[in-house]
Amino acid sequence: MTENGLVVSHVYKSYGAINVINDLSFTVKEHSITALVGPNGAGKTTVFNLITGTDPLDSGMVSWKGTVLTGLKPYVIARHGVARTYQDLRLFGSMTVRENVQVVMETSFKDGFGHRKKMIRERTDSILKSVGLLGVGSRRVEELSYAEKKFLSLARLLATTADLLLLDEPASGLDSTSQGDFVTFVRSLPTHAKTVCLVEHNLELVRNLAEEVIFMDSGYALRKGRPEDIMKDPELGAIYFGGVHEDE
């Protein structure tokens, strides 16, 4: 394997009789931001499940920075530098905000003692601060607002050492102020040597963020290209807006 970045190659996945992913191939360049767009049910979340090993793929190959991830257990894939958020967040509900970040960091920085405890406390503080949650660190997850929960799910990503970040509809449900904060946040990631692949319905936001767009429908990658070219395509517009409720 010579290619760098994320490589998804000829992947198939079906649930029972339904083919959810069909011969899907795409690449994501290191230190770039790529958006996965397409109507509901196109298979975008499934792609993330296959990359992270949550679900096994039927055939095909996934690799990150030259390491083949196909067939590895989720926790092993995580240790190869892949982290994700979930559309339904999946926070650790019985823990405080701070503990949610802390437990991920403690897993990611397993080695080394000494100043480790202090390092983890300081890093947790700075991560919480960067997403505006430092003041609610001792709250339990259930006491947070929806927007706070979404930013906590991003904070959990920063607590890892992962350099491939998969974001599943991270901005949906945020108001325009929070979306602004979110754009600033995601834009800063490539400068910290992170590679981002995100699923997003808000095309304005995609145009703002992504260098590359992959348009999916029914498990096929229909088009790949620059955001402005993809959005001009009338055929894709028909698929995207035709019959599908657009939440904006």
């Binding site: 992270t52 949550t54 257990k73 989720p74 926790y75 894939i77 995580a78 240790r79 982290a83 994700r84 979930y86 999946r90 926070l91 650790f92 509900g93 019985s94 823990m95 437990v103 991920v104 897993t107 990611s108 959990r156 890892t160």
Partner: peptide, 16 residues
């Protein structure tokens, strides 16, 4: 505790 709260998310963050 994280694994008990959400096994899928915990393993996706590298926890066994």
């Amino acid at each position: 505790i994280a694994g008990g709260d959400d096994e899928v998310a915990a393993s996706a963050f590298g926890m066994r």
